[in-house]
Amino acid sequence: MKKLIRVTVNDMEYEVAVKPNQTLVDMLRYDLGLTGTKNGCGEGDCGACTVILDGTPVSSCLVLAVQADGRAITTIEGVEGKDGLHPLQKAFIEKGAVQCGFCTPGMVLSAKSLLDENPGPSEEEIREGISGNLCRCTGYLQIIDAVKSVSK
C-alpha cells in the first residue's frame, strides 16, 4: 500500500504517494522528475545518487522514500541560485572537472557539504570529502582543483 509523505525538496514542499519499497533516488527521479540525481550502483558504492538530507550528504539509494517524510532535501537542481550557477558549479566547468557528467551532481553536492562545514579544507580534506563519489572519467585531479579554487 502506498503511503503519503510530505517532503521539502529544494525549498519546495511536495506531497508524494510512495510505495514502502521505493528508494529515495527513485522517488526523486520518477515521481518528482528531478533526474539530476543519478542511480549508479544502487548499493552505496558510487555516490552518483548523493543528496543532502537534513544538512548531511547521503547516498539516496540507501534511503527509503518513506523515510524522507517530514525532512528536507537538496538535490543538484537546488544548488543553483538566483544569479545562476553556484560558484562550485562554475569552478567545475572552468577547471574541466566534468566529462561525461554522471558523477558531477553527486560530486558537487559532496563538495558543497564539505565547504558549508569547512570553508577552507586542505587537499587531504577535499579528497576525503569526495571519497564517496566515484568518477570514471576525470581522474579526480580537476575536481580537486575546482573545489580548491572556491575554498577560502
Binding site: G44, T56, P57, V58, V63, E128, S131, G132, N133
Partner: peptide
C-alpha cells in the same frame, strides 16, 4: 568504514 556518504547513514 565505507565512505563519508555511507558513514553518515
Amino acid at each position: 568504514l565505507g565512505s563519508c556518504l555511507v558513514r553518515n547513514l
